[in-house]
Design a protein around this nucleic acid. Sequence first.
DNA 1: CTCTTTCCTGAAACCGCTTTCCTCCCCCCT
DNA 2: AGGGGGGAGGAAAGCGGTTTCAGGAAAGAG
Lengths: 351, 351
Amino acid sequence: MDVGKKTGGKSITIYDIAKEAGVSPATVSRVLTNSARVRPEKKQKIQELIEKYNFTPNAMARGLSDTHSRVIGIIAADVRNPFYSEVFVACELAARRLGYTVLLCNSLGEAGLERQQLEKLQEQRVDAVIQLGGRVDDLVSQLEYVELVNAMPERIPMVINGKLDGTQCYQVQINARKSMDLLIEHLIGLGHRDIALIGGRADVLSTFEKIQRYKQLLKQNQIPFRPELVQEAGHYNDAGAYAEMNRMLDAGIVPTAVIAINDFSAAGIARSLTEHGYRIPEDISLVSYDNTYIAEMLIPKLTSIDYDYGNLGRKLVETAIGALEGKEIPKLQMLEPTLVVRESSGPARAL
Amino acid sequence: MDVGKKTGGKSITIYDIAKEAGVSPATVSRVLTNSARVRPEKKQKIQELIEKYNFTPNAMARGLSDTHSRVIGIIAADVRNPFYSEVFVACELAARRLGYTVLLCNSLGEAGLERQQLEKLQEQRVDAVIQLGGRVDDLVSQLEYVELVNAMPERIPMVINGKLDGTQCYQVQINARKSMDLLIEHLIGLGHRDIALIGGRADVLSTFEKIQRYKQLLKQNQIPFRPELVQEAGHYNDAGAYAEMNRMLDAGIVPTAVIAINDFSAAGIARSLTEHGYRIPEDISLVSYDNTYIAEMLIPKLTSIDYDYGNLGRKLVETAIGALEGKEIPKLQMLEPTLVVRESSGPARAL
DNA sequence: CTCTTTCCTGAAACCGCTTTCCTCCCCCCT
DNA sequence: AGGGGGGAGGAAAGCGGTTTCAGGAAAGAG
């Protein structure tokens, strides 16, 4: 019956169109790119044929002469994390509006993978690379990453959402200090003084900065710093934070408010608090970072730091494309976070 | 200071390498592709130069002669939905293992976008397309989609995770009936008879099938069907399910168990139940579909239908690549779901 | 020492499209 | 009517690889 056989046949080309239309390939190309005027009758004829054969120009061939692909590569740590998927979708939207496509790779925190992805993107001749999280953020492996970046052809602009010294990377950062300011201000305003900070890894830059700022702010508010209230979890998932919160409570250390390093961690922390019989926010307040949909999903809904993903994605893409087009763009751009107050934070329990 | 100026310079090519190594471009290519033996000393020399200049072959040029790009296009409804991000990552992993790259587009449920994405992928000369959700699933717009698919060059295999008649698509389905069997069996085993089904849209095939099966199963168990217990929400998000659950409870209709069409919906339902003073699972049991990380994040943790994302992704990719390589592959493959029992389901409240 | 084989390697064609040159033609102006 | 100007479109040269073809060198066989 010969069903499903590769109906083979090379795909059709502008030569085929040209021949049937009785013109030269160049003319077809002109119609395709709208790069020069073509006599209306021919133009029409050609367009009909394109329609008829469902012809699509070969991006490979195009890219070969164009020198650029109109594709932006994005390396994300893991799109399963809503933070990254939000940013990714925002990037995709912004890119599309500017006529670009995005190509996504997940580095999954694997050592070799990031390098491999970068090479792959280079092969694909992406016009720019946006790096979302991963080793860039890691204070330990940053040096290694710097090397990677510096080995990239200078013609490919790289944009990261973070901080990285020693390279020509464009950096679109979110003001980590400011975000901690917002949370602490909010909590202190509610009368909290025993504020825990849980989750994440201190060797990730943004987390490190938050911890630093946390200490500073306590001092500014004449609150003694209690190291036992700050627990990194080694991870950014709920299980890690859950374990840390348990450990803290079981040790008899009971804060009146907890800052979770992200929404995932908040989920773990909420579980631990609940299991220990504490109500949120009546007994203990809980606030977090990232304001992903998780924040709205938990009970109670989380008070959380918002980054405006749409804006972040746009900035990343515009920076990449701007650089690409030779525009003068600041190497460092800082975005300001905001605080979204929901149900999980309330007045400190009376002493 | 001339910092950041496009250091211009075309990127280096095999011709540059060839010249410096004193060989022909063909030889360089042979080293690159390892397609023929080259005298060890030359080979070494060439490899050194490649290393030195950090040369990466241009995938465009390669693809031009190769005829195929080793790239698989994936159109997902929305990667922000963990269901899709899980499947996507699984696909990416499976693809990489087979030497392929994946290119992700989000159709975001927008009408024109899906068509546009498909064209874009076609331009990029992807070797195959995997469609995850979106209009394919929609009974109303399926016909339109069929047209789209049939307009694709036959050389590009298409794989969908769903059901679609009238095309040459490969279909990797999850047994929707079986999944409902598992849930109902579980709930009835716990003594439930007033079982609500909430969320989703009935014009989405998988949801439609679930509802059908739900009715069948009730009948088989001599439980009268109460239409007021089945409420589609028009969406698959928490807000929609939250509203529907509220409406039901406010109307004085109180089931002993609720089946949520997905984890998102379950979150909304959990909130509604909690706000109405019902405890889960003591008063009302809650079970859901998809078993994403959300299921583990909610309190209590959700009993949920699991699809084995790793396996699903692998199947999708293997099907695509298999078809591509001309293997004989069944047009329809069925995957069996399993039930993961957690905290949210328990014995029916004593009457 | 000559004749095959076997290995290596270079020349050149080709993949499909863009783009630069340059004709060719038509129209208008003087 | 002749010349100039401008628009349309064809020929051909890339873009950067892969691959076929064939030739030259080295090596083994007789």
